[in-house]
Structure formats: C-alpha cells, structure tokens
Simulated assay, not measured.
Amino acid sequence: MSEVLLVHGSCHGAWCWRDVIPALAALGHEARAIDLPGHGADTTPLAEVTLDAYADAILAALDRPAILVGHSMAGFAITAAAEKAPEKIAHLVYLCAYAPRSGVSLVEMRREAPRQPLLDALEKSADGQSFTVRPEAAAGVFYQDCPEEAVAFAVPRLCPQAIAPQAMPITLTDRSTSLPKSYIRCTEDGTIPYEYQVTMTEGWPEGSVEDMPTGHSPFFADPEGLAARLARIAERGR
C-alpha cells in the first residue's frame, strides 16, 4: 500500500478529488487530499497566500514519505514542497500540471504556451490580488468532458485564486530534481494546451510520461482510470 497525497489546482480544493480517493482505496492505496491555503475550507486571507505557504501546507500533511500528485498549478506547489523536504516525498506526479523550470514563475510559463484557452474565462479582482473563473465559462475550460452532475458539483465550489504564488519564480536544485517523477498528459486539455504539456516533458526519462484521453479534470471525467494510472505509478516505484 502506498500513501498518496492529492493536491488541487487553481480555484479548486480538496473537494475535486472526491471520486479518486475511493477509487484508489479500492486498489489498495491510502489517498488523502488537502485544501491549499486560501482554498476550500482553508480561510487564509488571499493577501497571505504564497508559494511558500502552499509548500508548508503540503509538508504539514505528511507524516511519512508519500506520492505527491499535483494537478495544474499544483505542479509548482509539490515541487516547492520537495525543495523544502525531499525526505518526505517518495514520488512527484504532475497531472496535466505546470512542470517548473528554475528561475521561472507559473505566470511566465502560462504565457509561453502556444495558446491561452483559459484567458477569456478569467476575471481579475479590483485589488489585483486574485482572479476568478467566470461560472458560465468554467465548464468549457475545466469540465468539458465531465458528467453533468460533477459540473454542477464543481462550479459553485470554485474560489478566487491568489496571484502571488503564481507570480513567484521557483529555484530548483537536486533536492527536487533528483526525486522520482512522472507526468500524466491530458490530450483534450482545455486549460493547459496538450502541445505545451509535450514541451514541458521533453527529455523526461523513458516510461515517466503517459497520455490520458481526457480534458483538464480527469478526476471527474475518468476517476477510475486516473486511479489505475496512479496505482501503476505507485507499483513501479516500489
């Protein structure tokens, strides 16, 4: 049995993993999800949300080495956690996520992508500290291949996303880069273009990258299939 900690992406919370956790449990793995600061049930003020705070929240949730799964922007969060305490992490899994480069922020990486499908769906707050996803646009960018029930569950739960952690460049060392890692690319992604996911994983070790035929939210579109992929990654790491 492996311990798996599931970390959500922008505007989401632990709630988005509701279907994956029991699917992983059915395969014999202990899975948990957390709310990053300022997300879900966590009440950290947006002005206090930083990439460092994300990393600390992840590490506080770990009491033994675990597989970290980071969705979308959480690619930065799990990597930042690995830089702080690699001994707490058995494997890094990037799920249609930003795979950080040293000295570059997530905002900069987003701008590098050949397309910006999310841009028109966003609204920036008046104080410039956060953005939200317009509810009428959320299904098209996040949930286009998800069951209607899941979309109805998810959209009202989307929260403002602090910009500060996404604008902070990250410095990578062998503390994170030496850890085992995997990437699950989503071929129908309506948020992070698939072709940019291909670019981010160029040169990764053979067998560490695989494609999943879903949009940006495989945790709703195919939770059993995602759980099976994560279970295989866990088995390979033993």
Rank of each mutant, 00 (worst) to 15 (best):
V4Y: 08
V7H: 15
V7G: 11
G9K: 11
W15P: 09
W15M: 01
V20K: 06
P22E: 00
H29W: 11
I34V: 08
G40W: 04
V49H: 12
L51D: 13
Y54E: 02
A61K: 08
L68T: 07
V69I: 09
G70P: 15
A74S: 14
G75H: 05
A77W: 14
A77I: 00
I78G: 14
A80G: 07
E87L: 01
R101V: 12
L106V: 03
A113E: 13
D120M: 06
D120F: 07
A126K: 15
Q129D: 11
E136I: 10
A139E: 15
V141Y: 07
Q144W: 14
P156H: 08
P156T: 08
A164Q: 13
D174T: 15
T177E: 10
L179N: 09
L179A: 09
P180V: 04
I184N: 09
Y194G: 01
Q197P: 08
V198E: 15
M200V: 03
T201D: 10
W204K: 02
E206H: 05
D211W: 15
D211G: 05
M212A: 05
M212R: 02
T214S: 01
P223I: 03
E224V: 03
L226D: 06
L226Y: 12
A227H: 11
R229Q: 03
R232V: 01
R232F: 07
R236Y: 14
R238E: 14
